[in-house]
Each structure stands twice: as C-alpha cells, then as structure tokens.
Write a protein that binds this DNA or RNA. Structure first.
Lengths: 201, 201
DNA sequence: TTTGGCATGTAATCCGTTACATGATTAG
DNA sequence: CTAATCATGTAACGGATTACATGCCAAA
C-alpha cells in the first residue's frame, strides 16, 4: 500500500486546493477522466490512511461547508509527493482487448471484426472531440494560471493517441473490407455510435 | 470469472496449436507481450476451469512430449471464443502515470520531469525498434500463412502508438527546456537508456 | 554431479470496481 | 412534501502479479 498510485494521485490533487472525498471523486471525473480514474472504494480508505500518516490533515469544521470534510495536504505530504515524482514511472502494459480480437479474427463470424473496428473508431473519434472541446474550455478558464501548459500537455497526449488510433482504424478497415458484411459500403451505412460526451474540467 | 479475458486469450492462443501452461506463458511473452501478458497464476487455474467446462481438453499422453500436459481447444471452446469475438470490446482507461507526473510537475525538483520524459522516450524508442524487427521476422516466418496480415495489423497498432508517443515527447521537452537541469544541452548529455530488447514471435 | 532450464502449480497480496447502506440537504 | 443529489462510507468480489515450492531432465 505504501507504493499505491492512488495515494499520490490524491496528494497531487490536493495541491490545487483542499478537497473532500466527494470532491476528489469529481476532480478525477471532471479533469483527468481520460487517463485516470478513482473510485470511492479507493478514495475514502486512502484518505484515512494518509491522515493517519500525517500526509493530509482535515480542515477545521468552520472551514468546511455543510457535511463536507475537507482535507488539505501537509508539508510532509508535499515532500512525499515530490519524492514520488522523482521515481521512474514504470510503464505498464495495458491489455488491448481490441488487438486480441483482431488476432483471433479468423474465428469470428463475417463482419463482426469490422464492427469492432467501427466501435473502436467511434470511441476514439468521440474522445478526440471531447479533448478538443476541453482544450478550448481550459484555455479560457485557466487563461492566466501557470499550470495551463501542464494541462494542455496531458490533453495533447490524449489527442495524439486518439489520432493515431483513428489512422490505425483506416488501415484495419482495409484488411476486413473483403468480408461479407464487412465491406466498405456496408460499413458506410452501418450506424456509427455517436461520440459520447465526457466532460473534462 | 465467466467473463474473464484471460479465458479468451487462452482459447484464442490454443486455436493456433495445442499448448501446455508453460507453452502458453511463452506464447504470450514471445508474441503479444507488448499488448497482453498472462502470469502462471492466471494460466494454470484457468486451464483447469476451461477443462472442467469442456472448452479445452488434455491431449493423450502419447501426444505430449515429456512432462508437458498439452491442451487443445474443443469445438465448444471455439464456439465460446466466437461468441466472445462478437461482443463489444469495451475500452478500459489505462492509468497513465506519466501524465500524473506531468500534471503535478510543479511539485517536482528541477530537472526530474525532463528525466521522466527522457525515460519515457527511451522506452518507446525501444518498443518501436523491437516492433520493427519483429515485423521483418514475422514477414519471413509466416511468409505464406494467411494470419500474417493479422499479426502485422497488431504490430502496426503498436508502432503508431509508439510514434505518437515519441512526437509527444518532443512537445513535452519544449515545455521543460527552461528548467535548471532540464534544458536541451543537459538532456543531450544525459545518458539515454538503451532500448531493452524484447522479442516478439 | 551439479547447474540451469523445463514445467506445474499455489498462497499471499494488491489493486481496483461494483454495489450497496445510510443519511443530510436542497430544489421544485 | 418529495425527489434528487450531495456526501461518506463499507463489503464483497474479481482479476492479476509476485513469490515461492516442487521436481524433472539434459548438458557441461
């Protein structure tokens, strides 16, 4: 538990402002959802643990409105975060289900692989649109803040990734174009899923 | 457990040839390591479960050499795999530690974020090189097999992703170039980690 | 003969999500 | 008043990795 990344995600989030567990959940959902998620099951117990270790501290009730129990990061917490930032971020292999399905496509019924690609494309097109709208929102909301470039950098990461995926989709399409039910014309008439709106910031 | 992706990864792998648990581990390591990994702790119990469900069957001892207990996929297993291939691959958000470290970079000591980028670049450069050598190996080894295009498609995915990441690194570098210890000249003399060789296929 | 790779497995643990329980507060 | 949503939490589960235990066989 000492090395859990959730703890540092929380510490990092708290550097921007004191937050309750509920606030933290929303922070993750609304600002880094496309590359980081945390559930209540992680947040609340971790907040407790961090408090016991003295890395965060509860604000006095007067400072917290209503039922909210806001926590702020302590100097010890900042030090711990700084130490973590120094450590190499070891790259984890994310399991890409879509690639397994491509690899085993010969066992699939005709057309279904083309459909998988379609869905994959729709997802990344939606993500791209979301990231682009997030960018303009951020540019105005954080116009003068010096953390703006950092936020933009993460968005750019997502955009580059999404664009690469869309290009791959075109390549993949070409491979399955010959299949019955999977040819270009059918693909064109097949309904594309609407880009699901996911707010960032 | 019914929906575990490990079960379908195994079923899919067994469509190419009968394999033991050990064989499966090597199959994953040597051919899809860059986007899918399985550990013994997953493979052996799952093989048992699949056998009990009749989706795989142990080969007669005569057919298995030495201590190896090879398993083959059954018709029921193929049917289950085909069913799975039809199901939408829901995209999971992979947690990108590197982006958290970018976002919280203001809490980092000067230079350390540039180092993180360096490591990230080295990793993806290595990955790219590995994928490119894997491609030429595959082209000769599977020259006439009709699954060659499928393998190439997965490699292409990885290559596009890696290239996108390398381009992002350049963008990120620009942002941290001003920092003491993080400027271009220091970055140029800082040792780049050698691309770690990871074989594919 | 001893070392190293082949081979099968299990136990412990971690990390994380889901689903639920509970209650306070606020808007219509 | 009542529905929604704000807010804090926990229990159960699931999926996956790590580390270890065990033993066989082949080559040096």
């Amino acid at each position: 538990m000492r090395s859990s990344r959730t703890r540092f995600a929380i510490l990092g989030a708290l550097t921007s402002r004191p937050m309750s567990g509920y606030d933290l959940k929303r922070f993750f959902e609304e600002s880094v959802d496309f590359f980081w998620r945390e559930s209540y099951g992680q947040i609340y117990p971790m907040l407790r643990a961090l408090e016991k270790e003295g890395l965060v501290a509860a604000l006095a009730e007067a400072e917290s409105d209503r039922g909210r129990l806001k926590h702020k990061i302590t100097p010890a917490g900042r030090a711990a975060l700084t130490r973590w930032l120094r450590e190499p971020a070891e790259p984890q292999v994310s399991r890409l289900e879509i690639l397994l399905k491509m690899l085993f496509a010969r066992q699939a019924e005709p057309g279904v692989t083309a459909q998988q690609i379609d869905r994959f494309r729709a997802h990344h097109a939606g993500k791209l649109a979301m990231l682009e709208s997030a960018e303009s929102r951020l540019r105005s909301e954080l116009a003068d803040r010096d953390e703006l470039p950092l936020w933009l950098l993460t968005l750019s990461f997502g955009r580059r990734q999404a664009r690469a995926m869309l290009e791959w989709c075109d390549e993949a399409d070409a491979l399955f174009a010959g299949e019955p039910g999977g040819d270009k014309r059918a693909a064109a008439s097949r309904p594309r899923r609407a880009p699901k709106p996911r707010r960032v910031r």
